[in-house]
Design a protein around this nucleic acid. Structure first.
Length: 497
RNA sequence: GCGCUCUUAGUAUAGUGGUAAGUAUGCCAGGUUGCCAACCUGGCGACCCGGGUUCAAUUCCCGGAGGGCGCACCA
């Protein structure tokens, strides 16, 4: 294949090598917003999650998993039924769709549109004789565009597929409170599928209708938010922050600033929230994403979700799509727990300090990753074209294959057998080894380069003499010889495991 | 969702109202090969779906699905 345009080459690589396929189901023409992962993509995803799980154990987080379907009342309480359903008006002539509230606010800037019912908004349209800005035609009635997918459970009980994992985690609050023996902050996370009925999904896996979230939650007291032990250990770390004041000045370069200073300068209000930014940054960095393409962008006040007191997005710069949000860090206050407490009639007030008489509903800080976006941005950043070679420079721990084993030539039985033996030995050591004897040796190296395999082992004629093999390193293409009995050890050493 | 535009092997593309839909790469089998997409032999593989016009449609027309771009949307 000719390597011309790198974006085209990249997009075809993703498909050819079995990372991501779709829209699914491809054989039926596909449904927009749905994608499948091939073996390489899934291996990558699993490796990312394995790494995250290991790291989160270190940070003191436990993992939970909840159903992806929840009854209506949950979404009433969470505010999603009210806020996740967009009221829209449609032009009766040109069929253009407008968000009613946004449209009204734009046309009638002096009015407080927020919180008006559909009837009230319809009245406003009538009163002011508002028509479609495009063609001047009157509007139809207000319709609802529901971003949540509705379904029915059992005997016609209305339920919704969850649009985020976070809410389902909050529903476990009283269990978690017991489970953690009231040791606050409680740190938990959930990984799993969520569903959003996007109006027009685009940009491949960046905006899917079914995707994986990986959301971390801190249940924490107000006092701890301001005086947080874990913060002290990390406060000198510098993060690239682009607050909304900078954005208002039309700047898009973040300032590299220590969390300590960010608090001092009131870019950030709470040390515990600053800690969340750090965790998000840390998890992104250990995937091998370079600093230069990472920034935190603060939401402006009207960009924020209904539950958020402060919100920063961790964004990664991509060639194809510009800055892409891969993680949202939200100060959700006590909004969620308060609402679920009200709707479920449970008492979520707990004593979180030394005085048992002082009770409060915990605050929630959230670090929400979109795993599929991580995978896309990671692949794009790892993708390199160098003098005719396509290579994915993935972190060795994340690569779909850790090591590939080749006989130098296919038709010499002794060499082949020795190669198979080496391959099996790696597998015995539970290292992700892949055996290939097809085509020339160079071809096999190239195949593995495209998959991001960090190490290739070649068994040659010399191996038959002295039991030594070559280890070829992906990024430099350098080779060293090691004894065949020491391959697994050598690979583990390089993986730092 | 609206407008414009596109859709041909796994990937990237050429082309056609009619008898074998071409090329590159890939893949498979075999040969060759003493370390970076080499070579030889043989083989595999495609006109997005539905309807219409036509003696005949992958090609023209209509509709649908999907992709790209612009608008809207993206709590």
């Amino acid at each position: 294949m000719k390597i011309k345009d790198s974006v085209v080459t990249f997009n075809s690589l993703i498909k050819r090598r079995g990372f991501i396929w779709g829209p699914s189901p491809e054989i039926y023409g596909g449904l927009a917003g749905f994608y499948s992962y091939g073996p390489a993509g899934m291996a990558l995803k699993n490796n990312i999650m394995a790494l995250f799980r290991k790291e989160l154990r270190y940070f003191g987080f436990g993992e939970v998993e909840c159903p992806t379907i929840m009854p209506s009342i949950v979404w009433e309480a969470s505010g999603h039924l009210e806020r996740f359903i967009d009221p829209v008006i449609r032009c009766s002539k040109c069929d253009t769709l407008y968000r009613v509230d946004k449209f009204l606010q734009e046309v009638l800037p002096d009015l407080l549109v927020d919180g008006l019912s559909n009837d009230e908004m319809e009245k406003l349209i009538e009163q002011h004789n508002l028509t479609c800005p495009k063609c001047g035609t009157p509007f139809n009635k207000i319709e609802s565009y529901n971003l949540m997918l509705k379904t029915q459970v059992g005997n016609n009980v209305d339920a919704y597929l969850r649009p985020e994992t976070a809410t389902t985690t909050y529903l476990l609050f009283n269990r978690l409170d017991q489970d953690a023996r009231r040791q606050y902050p409680i740190k938990v996370y959930q990984f799993g599928k969520v569903y959003r009925n996007e109006i027009s999904p685009r940009q491949g896996v960046l905006r899917m209708r079914a995707f994986d979230q990986f959301e971390l939650q801190l249940f924490i007291s107000k006092q701890q938010e301001m005086d947080f032990e874990d913060y002290e250990e990390i406060k000198t770390n510098k993060l690239p922050l682009l607050d909304w004041k900078l954005q208002e000045k039309n700047l898009d370069k973040p300032q590299l600033i220590s969390l300590e200073n960010a608090i001092k300068k009131e870019l950030l209000k709470k040390p515990a929230y600053a800690y969340c930014l750090y965790v998000g940054y840390y998890l992104t960095k250990i995937l091998g994403i370079p600093e230069q393409v990472i920034r935190f962008r603060q939401h402006s006040i009207n960009e924020r979700a209904h539950y958020a007191d402060d919100a920063w997005d961790l964004e990664i710069e991509t060639k194809q799509f510009g800055w892409v949000e891969i993680c949202g860090i939200h100060d959700r206050t006590d909004y969620d727990l308060r609402r679920h407490s009200e709707f479920s009639k449970q008492n979520f007030e707990v004593s979180m300090g030394s005085d048992p008489k002082i009770k409060e509903i915990p605050q929630v800080l959230e670090i929400a990753f979109g795993i599929d976006r991580i995978i896309y941005t990671l692949l794009e950043n790892a993708f390199n074209v160098e003098e005719g070679r396509i290579v994915l420079k993935l972190d060795p721990q994340l690569a779909p294959n850790t090591v590939a084993v080749f006989p130098l030539v296919r038709n010499k039985e002794d060499i082949r057998n020795l190669a198979i033996k080496a391959h099996k030995d790696l597998l015995e050591n539970r290292l992700g080894s892949f055996f290939d004897s097809a085509g020339s040796i160079g071809k096999r190296y190239r195949r593995q380069d495209e998959l991001g395999t960090p190490f290739c082992i070649t068994i040659d004629y010399e191996s038959l003499e002295d039991n030594s093999v070559t280890i070829r390193e992906r990024d430099t293409m350098d080779q060293i010889r090691v004894d065949i009995s020491k391959i697994s050890k050598a690979i583990k050493l390089r993986l730092k495991i």
